[in-house]
Amino acid sequence: MKRDKNLPLTETVYYILLALLKPAHGYLIMEKVEELSDGQVRMAAGTLYGALETLLRRNFIKSVQTDDSRRKVYVITDEGKRILCLDCQRMSHMIHVTPREGLQ
């Protein structure tokens, strides 16, 4: 089977999509990503902005209407969920085969 060309996702993109299962604005995403990654992934503002722009262009996320007129709130799309699931399966597979090959 031919693999989706968007795979594998980078660690940052994976965590952003995971964070956006619930709607959030930019800074909230940064905090959520840091929390989800146990403090391993800390994104700077310029990097996050660029990543959000790319994800919007690929239709993995969309912006939603809110009361806050100054900050945009984003949420994952169905396409985003699909790609997130695919990448999760990809990593599950790696985790499954690793001990089988003898690595503890």
Binding site: H25, G26, Y27, M30, A44, A45, G46, L48, Y49, S69, R70, R71, K72
Partner: peptide
């Protein structure tokens, strides 16, 4: 002082961009 390089098509996008930086200490 740090410099980013970006153009914006809509005022709302520019505002959102500046708020993101403001929230994260810039």
């Amino acid at each position: 002082i740090r410099i980013d390089y970006r153009h914006f098509n809509r005022p709302a996008d520019f505002e959102d961009y500046r708020m993101l930086f403001k929230d994260s200490g810039w």
